[in-house]
Amino acid sequence: MTTSRRLADRKIARFEKNITKRGSVPETVKKANDYPVGPILLGFFVFVVVGSCKSLCF
Rank of each mutant, 00 (worst) to 15 (best):
V25N: 03
K31S: 03
S52P: 04
T28L: 03
L42Y: 13
C53L: 15
T2S: 10
V46A: 13
R10Y: 07
L41S: 15
L7N: 09
Y35D: 06
R6D: 10
V37I: 15
K17Y: 06
R6K: 12
F45I: 14
D9C: 04
S24W: 04
F58I: 09
V50P: 00
K30Q: 11
K30I: 04
R22F: 15
P39A: 01
V29D: 03
F15V: 11
P39C: 01
L56Y: 04
N18Q: 14
F15D: 12
M1E: 09
L42W: 10
C57E: 00
C57L: 15
T28R: 12
K17W: 09
F58W: 09
V29Q: 04
S55W: 05
T20H: 10
V46N: 09
T28N: 14
V49L: 14
E16Q: 09
K17D: 07
G51D: 01
D34W: 14
R6V: 04
P26Q: 02
M1D: 10
S55R: 02
L42H: 12
P36F: 05
S52V: 06
R5A: 10
P36Y: 01
Y35R: 02
F58K: 09
R5C: 03
P39R: 08
D34E: 09
K11A: 12
V37T: 06
I40D: 14
K11T: 03
V46M: 14
G51K: 08
G23L: 06
P39S: 13
G38K: 04
N18H: 08
V29L: 03
N33F: 07
P26Y: 02
S52I: 09
S24D: 14
D9T: 10
K17H: 08
V49N: 00
V25R: 13
S52E: 05
S24H: 14
R6L: 12
I40M: 09
V49A: 11
V50Q: 00
L7W: 08
D34Q: 01
A8Y: 03
N18Y: 03
T2Y: 05
G43M: 05
P36C: 07
E27V: 12
R10C: 09
V37S: 08
F58V: 06
S4T: 11
F45K: 03
R6Q: 14
I12Y: 06
S55E: 09
S24I: 13
T2I: 08
L41N: 06
D34G: 01
N18A: 07
L56M: 14
A13D: 14
S52N: 10
S4F: 12
T20S: 13
V25W: 01
T20R: 07
L7T: 11
V25P: 03
G43N: 11
A8S: 13
L41E: 15
K21E: 11
R14V: 06
F15T: 15
I19E: 08
T28I: 08
V46D: 02
K31A: 13
P36W: 08
M1H: 02
V46H: 10
K54T: 15
I40S: 06
R22H: 04
R5G: 07
S4H: 02
K11Y: 04
S24N: 15
C53N: 00
C53W: 01
V37N: 11
Y35I: 02
G23M: 02
K30F: 09
P39K: 02
S52T: 13
K31C: 01
S52R: 05
I40F: 11
K30M: 07
F58H: 04
R10L: 15
S4Y: 06
R6S: 07
P39N: 00
R5H: 06
P39H: 12
